[in-house]
Structure formats: structure tokens, C-alpha cells
Amino acid sequence: MNVVVLVKQIPDPAAPQALDPQTRTLVREGKLILDDSDAYGVEMGLQLAEQAGGGEVTLVSMAPNGETSGLRTALAMGAAKAVLVSDDALKGSDALSTARVLAKAIQRVQPDLVIAATESTDGYTGTMPVQLAEFLSMPAVTFAKKISVGDGKVHVERQTEAGYDEVEAPTPVVVTVTAGVVEPRYPSFKGIMAAKSKPVDQLTVADLGLDAGQVGAAGARQEVTDVSAAEERKAGEIVVDEGEGYERVVQFLEQLKIV
């Protein structure tokens, strides 16, 4: 069972995020880290490959400047290798262009299963994995909270508005996983050392047989025209509880005529 896990390397969400004032796209300078949301997919991929009794996990990522620091984290967790698409032409790619590029990269690996997070922490459009499935002519099962594999099929518990559905799909298939689907392992020291020598195959847009005009800002057909501060909610009254804090809550409920 060969698994591709899509990983995004993002600016540290703990650091303040900003938009480039010129292009109005997310600033992705400086050190990038593995998106936390993707650690669950990596763990799921590793567990499923192990359960299947063979196969490996290949990471596929797209990032500027040949960035690999986030990939190394996932390699240290146990992924076997990585494919990184890095090309100046990709700057400003929207979800559709990103899916087009990643689909080409994944086709080189020929996986049985493609795992992605339901949405990235920084952009959270949440449509890219399904767009990817369409490019790959694969079924997609989104919002998986449990996955098992067997007999050339995946069996997924998929979140719904009302609860969850049990869904089955033949492989190859794209599955998106929610955070909490599994507990990601911490890379061991041995894993971290081994990760340094694991292969990272770096590709350009041309290597994938794509035209630079189809991707990046050139391929995006939406333009951000304005960014402004949202109407701020003002912080209100703060009461430090010294045993009677609840009384202020009761008063507030009375004012609103809730009690």
C-alpha cells in the first residue's frame, strides 16, 4: 500500500501573519514549518501503510525557494521520501492551480491512497483536495475521522452535519482527514537523523510538463482588490473572579432578559 500524504509548509501560525501589500497574497518568507493539520495525515499514512503490511509513505509538497524544513519534520516521523515542487512561477497560485500542479506530481508516484488535511491552517480554502481528486480522476472522501483499508478499498467514517456516514471507496482514492483522527507521533532522535539523508525529489513546473501560464499568479483568475481591518468587536468589562464572579453573569443574563 503506497500512500501519498500532501504536506504544506507554512509560516509559523504562532508568529503574526500578514499579507504582502503589493500582491495581497500571504507572506511566506522566512522559515516554514510543517502545517500542524498535516501531521495527522502523516501519522494516518504511516499507520495504514504499516497495517497493510508493506508499502511506504511519500510526501508531496509545493513550496517556494526549495523549502524543506517542514518536509524534514514529516520525514523524521517516518515517511520514506518526498517530492517537492518549487518554482518561482508558482508564486500566487490559487487552489485550482495548486491542485493542477500537485496532481502532476502525484501521478509520478502512482499511490493507492492520497491523504490531505481537510484544510490548511494558513489559507483554509478547503477545496484543493477535491480539485486534486478531479484532476486525478479519483473518488474523494472528505472529512474522515476514521480510516481503514483492505481488499482494495478504503472504509471511512465521514463527518456530516448530523453525525457521520460510513463510506467505502475503491483505491486509488483521495481522503481528507480532520485533526484528531490519530495522535501524531513525535519524531525520535533516530528518525530526525535518518530524515537528513532521505531523498527529496525537487521538481519545477517544466519538469511536470505544465506551462508557467497555467499556474501561479498568471493562472489565478481572481484578484484581491482591497484588504482592510474588520469591524472590531470591542473588549468589554473584565471581572476577576474572587468567588462572586457568577453574580455579574446572572446580572448580565437579567439585562438580556434571558432569565
Partner: peptide, 20 residues
Amino acid sequence: YDGRDVAGRLSVKLDVPVIT
């Protein structure tokens, strides 16, 4: 859930971006 899935598939079929 289903709305996002439909929009993603349609985006590729029609070659139009999706704004989410």
C-alpha cells in the same frame, strides 16, 4: 461538507476558480 465537495469538482470540470 457537500457544498465544498461540489464546488471543488465543478471548479476543475469548468476550469474556473472557487472563492471560499
